[in-house]
Computed example of a mutant assay.
Amino acid sequence: MSPAKTLLIVYHSQSGNTERLARCVAEGASEAEGVSVRCLRAFDAGVDDLARCDGLLLGTPENFGTMSGALKDFFDRTFYPLEGQLTGLPYAVFVSAGNDGTNAVREIGRIANGYGWREVAPACIARGEVTETHLGECRDLGRAMAEGLAMGVF
C-alpha cells in the first residue's frame, strides 16, 4: 500500500470570507481516502509544511486587486529555501473577490511558475458576497484535488 499523500491548504482571511472558502475546500478534500489534509493560515505555514506536501491549495482575499500580503509573505519566506525542489507540485487557487479576482489569480500564477508548480484546476473565484454556490464549488475543488492525489493523477 502506498503512503498517504498530503494536501496542504494555505490561506489568508481578514473578513472571514476566505476562511469560509478554506473550510469548504478542506471539508471536500477530507472526503478522499488516502490523503492527509492540513489547513493552515498563511502566517502559520512555512518551509517544512510546503516541503512535505504532495499538493497545494492557496486561498486569498482580493486586496487592492491582488493577493493578500499574508499570502505574499508565505511565498517570500518559502521561495528561496525551496527553490528548484518543488517542480511539478500540483496546485490550485481559491479567491474571495470584491472585484473580479483575476489579477490575484494571475499574480499567484506568476509566482507559482517561478516555483515550477503545475496548475491542475481553474481558480475558484467567489465574486462579491460568498454564496452557497461558491462554497459548493470550493468543496468540489478540495475533493477533486484530494482524489487526484489519491489516485496518482497529479
Rank of each mutant, 00 (worst) to 15 (best):
M145K: 01
G69S: 15
E62I: 07
V120Y: 02
G88F: 00
G88H: 02
A42E: 15
L21Q: 08
G46Y: 03
L86D: 01
M151S: 15
S96H: 12
E107G: 00
V25Y: 01
F43L: 12
A26K: 00
L56Q: 14
R77K: 14
V37R: 04
G84K: 01
S30Y: 11
G98F: 07
P90N: 14
A42W: 08
D48S: 15
V130C: 08
L58S: 04
S96C: 05
E27I: 02
A45C: 08
R38S: 11
L58F: 04
L149P: 01
A97F: 04
G65R: 05
S15W: 10
L149K: 07
R52T: 14
G98D: 10
F64E: 05
K72V: 02
V35T: 08
P81E: 14
L57Q: 03
D49C: 08
T87V: 12
K72C: 02
I108A: 01
A45P: 01
C39E: 13
G28F: 05
L40M: 11
P61D: 08
V95N: 05
E107M: 12
V130H: 08
V47T: 12
A150C: 09
T78N: 06
A92I: 02
G142W: 01
G65H: 07
A144P: 00
P61R: 10
D100E: 13
C39N: 14
F75E: 06
A51P: 02
N103P: 00
S96W: 01
A121I: 02
F79W: 12
P81K: 08
W117F: 13
P81Q: 07
A42F: 04
E137L: 14
S30E: 13
W117A: 03
Y80G: 01
T66R: 04
V35A: 10
F74Q: 08
E132A: 15
F64H: 10
D73R: 09
D44G: 06
H134Q: 05
E129S: 06
E33T: 07
S30I: 06
Y80F: 12
Y91C: 09
G16K: 05
A45R: 02
D100H: 09
S30M: 10
S15I: 11
G69C: 06
T131I: 06
G142M: 04
L21V: 10
Y115N: 05
T133D: 15
A104H: 07
Y91Q: 09
E19C: 04
E33S: 12
L40W: 00
